[in-house]
Amino acid sequence: MKILVSLSLLIFSINVYSFIPKLVTKKINNYKVEISINCKQKCHASEAVEKLTKEHIQKVRPYVFGGKAVGDVICRKIFKAKVKYYKDNKKNEQHFCLFKDGSYIPVGEFDYIESELAAKK
């Protein structure tokens, strides 16, 4: 029984930390972005790309300090989603914004959309 518990804990921990992102490129609102493959027609991640506005960016400004990337803050503050951590085989890191429906998007895409929105008059 003890072995079974330990084994299930081990499997659980492997599941938690073995996130491997699977992405496809999609055009949403004229933005060419990478998004999780599990996002079929519509998903929370694609809706986030559609919904993001200049006003949202203004709203998160106070939280962007100490060199934080705006994309991370947008994910947490605007969309109330979780930041998921990915490490490649060389332990290089990358953040993803994980939504409640299981769809996700690299937070860098929010940085990119922010720069596109800023360029619009």
């Binding site: 060199g67 990337a69 690299p106 937070v107 860098g108 895409e109 940085d111 990119y112 720069s115 360029a119």
Partner: peptide, 22 residues
């Protein structure tokens, strides 16, 4: 930078190989 091993954040003005080709 310390914003991860990615170039998406910068693609509008500082493209990677992929974005430049696109």
């Amino acid at each position: 930078n310390s914003w991860g091993a990615q170039c998406k954040s910068y693609k509008k003005h500082f493209p990677s190989k992929k974005y430049y080709k696109e």
